Deep mutational scan, measured.
Amino acid sequence: MGFKLLSKLLVYLTASIMAIASPLAFSVDSSGEYPTVSEIPVGEVRLYQIADGVWSHIATQSFDGAVYPSNGLIVRDGDELLLIDTAWGAKNTAALLAEIEKQIGLPVTRAVSTHFHDDRVGGVDVLRAAGVATYASPSTRRLAEVEGNEIPTHSLEGLSSSGDAVRFGPVELFYPGAAHSTDNLIVYVPSASVLYGGCAIYELSRTSAGNVADADLAEWPTSIERIQQHYPEAQFVIPGHGLPGGLDLLKHTTNVVKAHTNRSVVE
């Protein structure tokens, strides 16, 4: 069995187990497998329904001669939608809004960016022009300005110390501490036991640490421990890039980060 097929099978099995364990909360999309990078042309966006009122959005972007996937989250909030992270750029984010209108038909009224990198804030200006209120932590807003990236308009308070959590509509926002970046936030959907790890969490097929220019490698494993301790009931975990899975993604990420750190020390 090929690795790609095995990865998709694991996603399907995880979703099936969740649907059985929580039949009222989960209505997993039966329309197909989780979209992969090879299936999404740059400039297009796919939506994948995880649970009743919960979707991931998947886009792709060219970077350094390669094409990478990027995940975000959409959560229903009454007759409105909360968006977590842009679709990595203005063109993708405009396509995301169009796809949401086509498939869901509810307005996106608020959006949260989970850290300051372009795959999370690139497209904020498109959201703002569409009347979406954009939010991020003060740290993310400051770092985005320093980096020359787009800056969300509103500040999220109460997320300055490791372990801080605040309720934001249908989700809980959690600051686990520094990891992929010093400002990275985690998003949890309690009604569906869905954990969105953003770039602080890796997919299972990833074996290298990737972009760690703004990471705190020493603190990252401790931050992941905080996530595990705060959300032990999480059933569906979405990484910032690639295929979702279960809580095993947290341990896998820790292993990859520690291996990278150990290699760096040896070198």
Results as ranks from 00 to 15, higher is better:
2 G>W: 08
4 K>H: 07
4 K>I: 15
6 L>K: 05
7 S>Y: 04
8 K>P: 00
8 K>G: 11
8 K>E: 06
9 L>R: 09
9 L>F: 10
11 V>Q: 06
12 Y>H: 07
12 Y>L: 10
14 T>L: 10
14 T>R: 05
15 A>M: 06
18 M>I: 05
19 A>Y: 14
19 A>H: 02
19 A>L: 11
20 I>M: 14
21 A>L: 12
21 A>R: 07
22 S>R: 07
23 P>D: 10
23 P>T: 05
24 L>C: 09
27 S>A: 08
28 V>W: 07
29 D>W: 13
29 D>V: 11
29 D>Y: 11
32 G>H: 07
33 E>C: 14
36 T>D: 11
38 S>T: 10
40 I>Q: 07
42 V>L: 06
43 G>W: 09
44 E>G: 10
44 E>T: 05
45 V>K: 03
48 Y>P: 06
49 Q>I: 10
49 Q>A: 09
50 I>N: 15
50 I>K: 03
50 I>T: 07
50 I>Q: 06
51 A>K: 05
53 G>L: 07
54 V>Y: 00
56 S>E: 07
58 I>Y: 05
60 T>E: 07
61 Q>K: 05
61 Q>I: 07
62 S>A: 07
65 G>K: 07
66 A>V: 05
67 V>I: 08
68 Y>R: 08
68 Y>A: 07
68 Y>D: 07
68 Y>E: 07
70 S>W: 00
71 N>M: 04
72 G>I: 00
72 G>W: 00
72 G>P: 01
73 L>R: 01
73 L>I: 11
74 I>N: 01
76 R>F: 06
76 R>A: 09
82 L>P: 03
82 L>Q: 12
84 I>E: 01
84 I>V: 14
86 T>D: 01
88 W>K: 00
88 W>H: 00
92 N>C: 03
94 A>L: 12
95 A>I: 09
97 L>S: 04
97 L>K: 04
98 A>L: 11
98 A>F: 14
99 E>H: 15
99 E>P: 02
100 I>R: 01
100 I>M: 14
100 I>F: 02
102 K>P: 04
104 I>M: 15
105 G>F: 15
109 T>H: 15
110 R>L: 14
116 F>E: 03
116 F>V: 03
117 H>L: 00
118 D>Y: 15
121 V>I: 08
122 G>T: 10
122 G>S: 06
123 G>K: 02
125 D>Y: 08
125 D>W: 12
128 R>P: 03
128 R>E: 05
130 A>V: 06
131 G>W: 12
136 A>E: 02
137 S>H: 13
140 T>M: 01
140 T>F: 03
142 R>H: 12
142 R>M: 10
149 N>T: 05
149 N>F: 11
149 N>E: 06
149 N>M: 14
151 I>A: 08
152 P>W: 01
153 T>D: 05
157 E>W: 14
157 E>L: 15
157 E>V: 14
158 G>M: 12
159 L>F: 04
159 L>R: 02
159 L>H: 03
160 S>H: 10
161 S>G: 14
163 G>K: 14
164 D>I: 15
167 R>L: 07
168 F>I: 14
170 P>A: 12
170 P>C: 03
172 E>I: 15
173 L>K: 00
174 F>E: 03
175 Y>A: 13
176 P>Q: 02
177 G>K: 01
177 G>S: 03
178 A>G: 11
178 A>Y: 05
180 H>C: 00
180 H>N: 01
181 S>P: 01
184 N>W: 01
185 L>V: 11
186 I>N: 03
186 I>K: 00
187 V>D: 02
187 V>G: 06
187 V>K: 00
188 Y>T: 03
190 P>H: 05
191 S>A: 08
194 V>G: 03
195 L>R: 00
197 G>W: 01
197 G>S: 03
197 G>F: 02
198 G>P: 00
199 C>N: 00
200 A>C: 04
201 I>E: 01
203 E>L: 01
206 R>H: 06
206 R>Q: 05
207 T>V: 13
209 A>M: 14
210 G>L: 11
212 V>M: 09
213 A>E: 14
215 A>Q: 12
216 D>M: 11
218 A>M: 10
220 W>M: 04
220 W>A: 11
222 T>G: 10
223 S>A: 10
223 S>Y: 02
224 I>L: 13
225 E>T: 07
227 I>H: 01
227 I>N: 02
228 Q>K: 06
230 H>V: 10
230 H>C: 11
232 P>L: 08
233 E>Y: 08
233 E>G: 07
234 A>G: 11
236 F>A: 06
238 I>H: 01
239 P>R: 02
239 P>E: 02
240 G>P: 01
240 G>A: 03
243 L>F: 11
243 L>S: 12
243 L>D: 14
244 P>Q: 11
249 L>Y: 03
249 L>C: 01
250 L>S: 01
251 K>D: 05
251 K>W: 10
253 T>E: 00
253 T>F: 00
255 N>M: 07
256 V>F: 05
256 V>D: 02
256 V>T: 10
258 K>A: 12
259 A>H: 06
261 T>I: 13
263 R>P: 05
264 S>Y: 09
265 V>Y: 06
266 V>I: 04
266 V>N: 06
